[in-house]
Amino acid sequence: MIVCVAVVGHQNNPLYIQSFTEADDALKLHHIVHCSLDVVDERVNNPKKSGPTLNETFLGLLYPTENYKVYGYLTNTKVKFIMVTTDLDVRDADVRNFFRRFHAAYVDAVSNPFHVPGKKITSRTFAERVSTIVKSFGLNAAG
């Protein structure tokens, strides 16, 4: 189950962060997302470690922590997507698929002429769409 997704801007500032959990750990999830930015920086600055994945937007598993796994994605415009899941066995293909759909939703949201680049995404449509994608991720994994 995905518990948190985030869009992070150029100055490592959150543009959109939403947790999908009933437990009271939203703050902790924010911390986890924030910490994962270190890994993104590390991967982006030392790309030789991920030699074959050069030019790839999907950054893979960023780091496992107590009960979560954090995945990352970096768009060509250097906007970061972070996803936190509680599933221990996640197929890479599922995550890639999730990020692709998430990216599409993001592109649509920022294509809104009233959206100012670099500002937080406040679109309700975007939030609904993300929520759908997150839910369907759970279904796919189950199925």
Partner: peptide, 11 residues
């Protein structure tokens, strides 16, 4: 503050 993480900063 610098990175604008409001919830974390609030805490």
């Amino acid at each position: 503050r610098q990175e604008g993480w409001l919830t974390l900063l609030w805490e």
